[in-house]
Amino acid sequence: MKFSEKVMSAKREPLKALESKILQVNLGYKCNMSCKHCHVSGGPNQTQIMDRKTAESVLQIFVNNPFETLDLTGGAPELNPSFRMLVAEARKAGRNVIARTNLTIFFEKTMEDLAEFYRDQRVELVASLPYYLEDSVDRVRGSGTYKKSRATLKKLNNLGYGMGSPGLPLSLVYNPQGMFLAPPQRTLEIEYKRELQERFGISFTHLYTFANMPVGRFKDFLSRTNNLDKYMEKLASAFNPATLDGVMCRYIVNVGWDGRLFDCDFNQVLGLTTSSDVPHHIDQFDYRAFIGRRITVDDHCYGCTAGQGSS
């Protein structure tokens, strides 16, 4: 059954957005890493990157509308030359900023002061760490990733991140290292906390467990190994209608690196823009028009509604 039909049978109406509190902005697909599960197929050679003019438009839309949080993602969002401007201006406007960071970017040239910048700006960090063991992390994200991630987490802890200090939350993101579903978030969070504390004295705030979306590089892997249909069946059979109220697309507006508007980052990669009755580009953005809009869905959306959900 198609996802749209599944939603109709569960809710008796299409999936619709509520008032958006979060403006999620993808600053581009350029990244210092090339993780096997990356839904944007990010990497050092990617050229899609948000230009200054678009970044300034994003900022205007953000501060001129009742968004509470600016959620910056990529690629590695820090590689965009407008990244620090966006963070600083959003914070100056008194809003929250979330940065989705890969933990290894801190070792790149010109990023030596990144951790202190984050601390000074009180940026909420959401960091990718697909597992607490070295083999598992390096297999998905590349050799040496785990050691760098560990060193960054220690540094962030030393600056107060993830230690209970107000304004310095540090959350980690688990994702399966293959074509299986994520375990229960709460159980794994307890284990992550125990293992990282006992092994390295590392603390963090929350763990989020996400399913791998059948999009981008992970979809390439599924197709290459003839497992795409099987994985889609697995996601569909794990459909949980209780997750529909909490899926992130209902609470965010997503801006692509080129200024186009989407319901989520996955739709962005697939080129599935917002529904036809609302603007498709930030140049025509209208906050009120986005409330109650019909969410653009396709079968990849099963990834956000499988089991406990992934938003």
Binding site: Y131, L133, D135, S136, Y174, P176, Q177, G178, F180, L181, A182, P183, P184, T187, L188, E191, T209
Partner: peptide, 12 residues
């Protein structure tokens, strides 16, 4: 093995 992975466990 798949069930173990889905419960958040590893080869350890």
């Amino acid at each position: 093995t798949k069930s173990c992975l889905e419960e958040g466990m590893s080869l350890e």
